[in-house]
Write a protein that binds this DNA or RNA. Structure first.
Length: 853
DNA sequence: CACCTAGTACTTTTT
DNA sequence: GTACTAGGTG
């Protein structure tokens, strides 16, 4: 319950904590000042106390930018006497908002609850839920995630009999549509600008997609922002209300806002201009999803009176810390083993620590960062082997797991007749005889026709089909549909009378999900546990009226971010992508996979701007470390795409800051400055005398680990602990009450993801680390995809013909750059980043490759 | 017509 | 791992 108006006339907690300006005489004033300003440096103080008008805070990593916002809000409330509900703070994740609120709560108490905070997406969703009808958006709209979006597109592809691969791959089409939307283009404008065949194709899909989402009462993530902006632009009365409501605006991570978000903020600030944005252009890493660095560069132009708190020195901060350790590994397993060994040495995990060893570090002070989610695999295995607990952020996200989405689809269906995608999701789970053919008939029946120009709501079609009113549906499917329609109507009758967890109980049992999972063995148990987890999380909404609880739960679950799962207090090592690590810090950080083609990623090799973004990403990663930083790379990368050179980013770090961990390694040949070089790698790989044989990884305890059984047992022990540990009682439960009778968007309940989940592949032992399949002599060549027949080229036996960085021309893939190449027994496998067709590995003797002068 | 199994191809980053 | 497909079976 959030700030109920007290019938006795006592001041509300918010009112109590509000100092009156008039009361702030000498001593009181300085006490407030002291508490808020004392921990801040000069620049921060200036930012905090500059409260009127536009303010741009540009500062480097670790300089306390978020802190500036928190203290500024405290200052506004306690020193300037601004009502907390007049203040808005936009953060990058829900987690960041929750943390900011926690810190604010410590500083100023209960008033912290009334400050509006959230992500752009969640704030827009809340505003649209309340006021969207002013621009024609139905109240009960559903938020579609990437998976839902793809299902919509796949429906089109099926209608058109097009493949879901190649240039009509749903993710590709959706990416293009999203980019156009973020550029402010609608389908018509896309069509006008389309030049290539593919662009016209995408434009047509964009039109259909927009129409279909409208028909389904659904919005995607981009729409949330676009409609949120449209609300402010096209509903003046509503816009004025919000402008009057929020007199002081704050935006964190401003460098990652896109054009739409910027315009949204500008609309809100139009009246009073009290806009404080905080960012660091060196940490701009989201241009691929529309973030526009011009938002920073243009700020002063758009707000001529803006105060700017200047950027501070950055790199010198590194000098105070320890030197950076670099390790050149042979392959990802070796790399992971080295990281784990260092963690064991530094933490108390390893027994028999030397007496003179430094104070053991705690596991929650350690993070392992990587460029792509797939890279977590090798590291997880190594951690599991050493029984080091970890939390994996991202990867297969909880709310995207199949069974969780199934359960959520049921909830969506209960509150929508039109949400076809969710209906189709639940129709045949568990299998009940409703297949492709039946779905096709249902879609046809729902489609617009002469008698129903807007189409028929899918929910109605299902009920009709259950009554035998849709021709062609076979008996079994018909009975199932009748059963589903019946369950839906019964559950709907119950919504208003039961709590959300109880409603989910009904869904689980009456949908057959529960019985289905019970018959599915170990995997079913795992999935069932996830459904119980979901049920537990839904309990956070019990304070709300049941119908509101359902709406809010469905909405919030659609908007959780990866980072929201991060638990900084858990005694676990954190595994996280470089992107998701932004805004977080640890005393000890490992950045793994610093291999050309991985980081920087191969897709960035062709493009100067993308390469710069990779470099900034590296900067973000490096600056996550408060005290100790270790960098590592593996010469052999996974996926059979050849060897990789040490990342160029390693070479860009001043030599004197680095300590090479394997300098004295007898296997290192000194060919590269980072120890293990190409020649030794190649010899070890192809020559059969690999140090890898037998013992696995040098220096690691050998023979103690049996991949299959051990992993299984440990996985069980872990997942149990991880689950119970992940459920936190919400700090507060206030949701939506206005402190006065003003309409109000305030605190959202915090949704927590399970942490430390052990991925299924670790459980089976199939993917577990161990010696790779050994073949005599050369390793198995990766599959050669393209088969361009061409005469063999002259080459010197035993020597690579293609050099990294060579520009090459391929008859069908066009121009590309050699990422790396590897000698096999009779050939050379060249990995090339092509401008248009991505990265391919080709056999030099077969592919007709021309080296460009 | 639906369902199951096995085989194949795919993996940048995410609200 | 996931998603999709093809082909055989009930």
């Amino acid at each position: 319950m959030n700030l109920p108006l007290d019938p006795t006339g006592e001041p509300s907690p918010a009112e109590r904590s509000l100092p009156r300006r008039a009361q702030l005489t000498g001593a009181a004033l300085s006490a407030v000042q002291e508490r808020i300003l004392a921990p801040l440096n000069e620049a921060q103080r200036r930012a905090v106390t500059t409260t009127a008008g536009p303010l741009l805070v540009l500062a480097g990593a670790g300089s306390g930018k978020t802190r500036v916002i928190t203290h500024r809000i405290a200052w506004l409330i306690q020193h300037e006497g601004v009502a907390p509900w007049k203040i808005l703070a936009v953060t990058f994740t829900n987690k960041a908002a929750a943390e900011m609120r926690d810190r604010l709560h410590e500083m100023i108490g209960e008033a912290a609850r009334d400050v509006a905070m959230g992500t752009f997406h969640s704030l827009c969703a809340r505003m649209l839920r309340r006021d969207g009808e002013a621009i024609g958006l139905p109240k009960g709209f559903t938020i579609y995630d990437a998976d839902d979006q793809a299902r919509v597109i796949k429906g089109f592809l099926k209608e058109d009999d097009l493949p879901a691969t190649g240039e009509t791959k749903p993710s590709l089409i959706l990416g293009a549509i999203s980019r156009a939307k973020n550029d402010g283009l609608n389908a018509d404008q896309m069509e006008d600008r389309a030049i290539t065949h593919h662009e016209r194709l995408v434009a047509r899909f964009a039109r259909r997609y927009a129409a279909e989402l409208k028909r389904l009462d659904a919005v995607d993530f981009d729409d949330l922002l676009l409609e949120g902006l449209r609300l402010l632009q096209e509903a003046p009365a509503v816009a004025d209300r919000y402008r009057a409501k929020w007199e002081y605006l704050h935006v964190d991570e401003y460098q990652d806002t896109n054009r739409i978000q910027y315009n949204w903020v500008r609309e809100l600030a139009a009246k009073h201009g009290n806009l404080c944005v905080v960012g660091d252009d060196d940490q701009s890493i989201y241009s691929w999803r529309g973030a526009d660095i011009r938002n920073i560069l243009d700020f002063e132009r758009d707000w001529p009176t803006a105060e700017v708190v200047p950027k501070k020195k950055l790199w010198t901060e590194l000098e105070g810390g320890d030197q950076i350790t670099v390790y050149g590994a042979f392959d990802p397993e070796d790399e992971a083993a080295w990281i784990v060994r260092r963690i064991e040495e530094a933490s108390a995990v390893v027994t028999g620590r030397r007496a003179d060893a430094p104070e053991p570090v705690s596991l929650n002070g350690i993070a392992i960062l990587y460029r792509t989610n797939a890279q977590s695999r090798a590291i997880e295995e190594a951690l599991l082997r050493s029984s080091i607990p970890y939390q994996l952020i991202g990867g297969t996200r909880f709310y995207q797991r199949r069974e969780v989405k199934d359960a959520l689809a049921w909830l969506r269906v209960l509150r929508s007749d039109t949400d076809r995608i969710s209906y189709e999701r639940i129709l045949n789970v568990p299998p009940r005889g409703i297949g492709d053919k039946t779905i096709e008939l249902l879609r046809a029946a729902a489609a617009p026709s002469v008698s129903a120009p807007d189409g028929t709501p899918y929910g109605h079609v299902i009920a009709a089909a259950g009554r035998g009113e849709v021709a062609g549906v076979n008996t079994r499917a018909r009975n199932s549909l009748a059963g589903i329609a019946d369950v839906i109507s019964r559950l709907r009758d119950r919504i208003a009378a039961v709590t959300l967890p109880e409603l989910l109980d009904g869904v689980y049992s009456e949908s057959g999900l529960r019985a289905h999972l019970a018959s599915e063995g170990v995997e079913g148990e795992e999935r069932w546990a996830n459904l119980l987890e979901l049920r537990g999380i839904s309990g956070r909404f019990m304070e709300l009226a049941p119908l509101d609880a359902l709406d809010r739960f469905v909405e919030e679950t659609a908007l959780v971010a990866d980072q929201d799962a991060f638990d900084g207090d858990a005694e676990r090592v954190t595994l996280i992508t470089l992107h998701a690590a932004k805004g977080l810090e640890w005393p000890t950080v490992f950045i793994s996979g610093l291999t050309e083609g991985l980081f920087p990623h191969s897709r960035a090799l062709m493009d100067q701007e993308q390469m710069e973004e990779e470099r900034r990403l590296c900067y973000v990663g490096i600056t996550r470390a408060k005290r100790r930083l270790s960098l590592s790379y593996a010469l052999r990368r996974g996926w059979g795409d050849g060897d990789g050179a040490p990342s160029r980013f390693l070479a860009e770090i001043p030599e004197e800051l680095l300590v090479v961990a394997n300098d004295d390694d007898p296997r290192a040949d000194g060919e590269t400055r980072f120890g293990r070089g190409f020649r030794s790698a190649r010899a070890g790989f192809a020559g059969g005398e690999s140090w890898r044989e037998g013992s696995g990884t040098p220096g690691a305890p050998s023979g103690a680990f049996r991949p299959g059984r051990d992993l299984e047992a440990r996985r069980r022990a872990y997942s149990a602990g991880a689950r119970s540990g992940s459920l936190r009682v919400p700090d507060t439960d206030g949701i939506d009450e206005a402190p006065d009778d003003d309409e109000y968007i305030g605190e959202a309940p915090e949704l927590i993801q399970p942490v430390g989940r052990i991925p299924p592949w670790a459980a089976t032992g199939r993917g577990a680390a161990g010696a790779p399949p050994q073949t005599a002599g050369a390793p198995l060549p990766p599959p050669l995809r393209p088969r361009t027949v061409a005469p063999a080229r002259a080459r010197i036996p035993g020597e690579r013909y293609f050099r990294d960085g060579d520009r090459v021309l391929h008859p069908s893939f066009g121009e590309g750059i050699v990422v790396t190449s590897k000698l096999t027994r009779h050939d050379e496998e060249v990995t090339i980043a092509f401008a248009g067709s991505g990265v391919k590995t080709l056999a030099a003797s077969i592919a007709n490759l021309e080296v460009q002068g």
